[in-house]
């Protein structure tokens, strides 16, 4: 009210009360008009803000729709990819059935006598066929993972012991006649776990086939124990070991270590796939090794934790 006080004091004392009042009213009217103007300006500003807000909302709605559409498109593309990979798998496997099995029948002498040289050549056809089959499986698995299209089929009450016994018998046949002792050691109180049985077996077979490939003599020890609601599976071999600087490459697709390339002949996809599969179980896969001292691969799977889809 300072303004009013000043205005009043500026008025001459001779002025009569009516004039004074008139003047005051005029002043007040002016101020009122000013306030009205201010209010109108403020209203315009508010309206502008509201407009802006509404425009933003429309834009957000539009963006939401765009995202939704993009998501649908991505899902459609993924379904197409999945269907393509599934049909590729079928189309590639069917001729391999003929290649491998007709060669086996001929090699067995079912179609007449075969000499040693012929049998050996047929053995090469069979081995190459099997190798091709494993490459096809790996490439298709990797494609599925990268497309985000791999799904697990989780079951409750998966018995790790049964699974490892099956892996053990495969490992024994893989070391064949090398002086390698394959053993299985399972903790008695191992709980049943929630897992995709087939995929977990695949992980263990991948690890074991590497161990068998690289271990010329000594031992391969398969173990399983329970550790704080996590079942830890491990495979320890007495092979050449993996140098620290090569260890990361083991889990990168299409990157094999020098030793791997010399001895392996695989795609180098087995371990990257296995790690993704372990992660999809809510678990982890890692290795501990020193050059010249063998290697241990660990797979830790939570006993109850639900799984998610693996991402690329």
């Amino acid at each position: 009210m300072d303004n009013h006080t000043m205005t009043v004091s500026a008025v001459s004392p001779e002025m009569d009360t009516v004039d004074e009042l008139k003047l005051k009213i005029e002043q007040l009217q002016k101020e009122n008009a000013g306030l009205r103007q201010d209010l109108a300006d403020a209203n315009i500003e508010i309206e502008a803000v509201v407009d802006e807000f509404q425009r933003t909302q429309v834009e957000i709605e539009q963006a939401k729709k765009d995202v939704e559409r993009a998501k649908e498109q991505a899902e459609r593309a993924n379904n197409v990819k999945s269907a393509f990979l599934a049909s590729m798998s079928h189309e590639l496997r069917t001729p391999l059935n003929s290649i491998i099995n007709f060669s086996k029948f001929v090699a067995q002498g079912v179609m007449g006598p075969v000499n040693d040289e012929q049998r050996e050549a047929l053995g090469e056809v069979i081995d190459s066929g099997k190798h091709l089959l494993s490459l096809i499986n790996d490439v298709l698995d990797m494609s599925k993972i990268e497309a985000g299209a791999l799904r697990l089929f989780m079951e409750d009450n998966v018995n790790v012991t049964t699974l490892l016994e099956s892996a053990l018998s495969t490992a024994k046949s893989l070391v064949a006649d090398k002086p390698v002792d394959v053993t299985l050691e399972i903790e008695k109180t191992l709980p049943l776990i929630r897992a995709d049985r087939q995929r977990l077996l695949q992980v263990m077979l991948n690890i074991l086939s590497n161990a068998c490939k690289f271990t010329e003599k000594g031992s391969i020890r398969i173990k399983a124990h329970n550790n704080d609601d996590t079942v830890v599976l491990s495979v320890t071999d007495s092979g050449p070991g993996i140098a620290k600087e090569d260890q990361a490459a083991v889990f990168e697709p299409f990157k094999q270590t020098d030793t791997g390339l010399r001895q392996g002949g695989g795609t180098g996809l087995g371990m990257p796939i296995s790690r993704k599969l372990a992660e999809a179980h809510g678990g982890t896969l890692w290795l501990e090794s020193q050059k010249g001292e063998g290697a241990t691969f660990f797979v830790a799977i939570p006993v109850t934790k639900p799984a998610t889809s693996p991402s690329a």
Partner: peptide, 14 residues
């Protein structure tokens, strides 16, 4: 007895 053995397909069979 099938060559379609991607996981999804096996699950459908099951």
């Amino acid at each position: 007895l099938t060559a379609s053995v991607m996981n999804e397909e096996v699950e459908q069979l099951r």
